[in-house]
Write a protein that binds this DNA or RNA. Sequence first.
DNA 1: CATTTTTTCTATAGACCTATAGAATATATA
DNA 2: TATATATTCTATAGGTCTATAGAAAAAATG
Lengths: 208, 208
Amino acid sequence: MKANTEKHKYQQQRLQAIRSAAAVFAEKGFHGSSTRDIAERMGIKQGSLYYYFKSKEEALGEVCLFGIEEYVSHMEVIAASDQSFEAKLMATITSHLSSYRERNEALKVYNDERLYLPEEKRGNLKTLGSGYRQLLEEIFEEGVQSGVLRQSIDCHFAAQAVIGICNAWGDIIVRDPDLDLFDIIQKCTDLLMNGFREARTSRRTDDR
Amino acid sequence: MKANTEKHKYQQQRLQAIRSAAAVFAEKGFHGSSTRDIAERMGIKQGSLYYYFKSKEEALGEVCLFGIEEYVSHMEVIAASDQSFEAKLMATITSHLSSYRERNEALKVYNDERLYLPEEKRGNLKTLGSGYRQLLEEIFEEGVQSGVLRQSIDCHFAAQAVIGICNAWGDIIVRDPDLDLFDIIQKCTDLLMNGFREARTSRRTDDR
DNA sequence: CATTTTTTCTATAGACCTATAGAATATATA
DNA sequence: TATATATTCTATAGGTCTATAGAAAAAATG
């Protein structure tokens, strides 16, 4: 019988297995990684890995979940909070990019490799991921309604654009750990709020 | 001796081989694809593929090159042209997203799988790719100097942000062919120039 | 200490994969 | 048509990979 507390090291070791798998998958991709690679990284033999995962695919599923769960729950807090639109936007970017820095491997794996999961597991993750986008979209809708944002903006487009910028910069951050995270957060926020143009002279009437 | 014109179908068949490899790599990733998959897609047997490629890696190299070459040369034309900053930005986005739609598989492979190439070939592609970013950066520098863009913007950041948005939307476009390309191009340009904010009230003095 | 439970190891079956060699077929040329 | 060249095929060597089974070692428990 499994003891109820951590008398056995199973939980801790499994977490380490997930982290190892994340690191290896992030570096070599799912199909480019072997179970031997993962096992070696955590200091056990190839066969022993199957004490923690039923299959390599299960490992991928756990890594993806681990990568996304934190920043989705952050998003829920941000969306429910009572801040200005700009503050929420900045908080979103901060959360997204911080997650990238802290558990960058798992998040990268979620972004790049989740499509190799079997239909069913991918469905569960998709629910999480589109929940994230949905919350972000709603923040934008609020912003439009409150008059902070222009009436003409397409909230679905906007949410995707934010995610795109964050992912692009997340990748860059991962490769270059010397970059100033806060600097990038500010520039992202500034770009999204104000654009690059010097002075707003005329406004195109892009109604749709 | 190889004839000087296309008396032999080698060139055409090789191009088809590259396209087949692009499609398969885009769907399953480099390591997830087998030479059998690629050969089957072009209607020949696995072993015959080696008449066109020395190795699977060579095929990847050709696909990546095929994916990027067109939009890099577009960029050169745009950068050298005599247009306003906004027109150049829009042309860049148009070229990037159109390339995605037309040769989407190869471009996706370039973005996602090029890191699996051996050092040497990756170097050649990197030269092309960072040439692209460099040109875009220079367009932004011109924009700042001419006073169209705010003095405070970081041109390196800006170029990466544009590429990030284009790649994010490129992926979405590939998955959903019904999307109106021109609509997205306009929204991207608008976002980058003007941001989302309703009216520019105060400007943060973010000098650095 | 003796016994049970947890964790890791070794060894291997069975599948698939890349790349090559040489035969076979198709196509062009004289 | 006879010959040369280009293209595709079959068969396979040699390697790696996933997943499993059962033994061994380590840790907990009474």
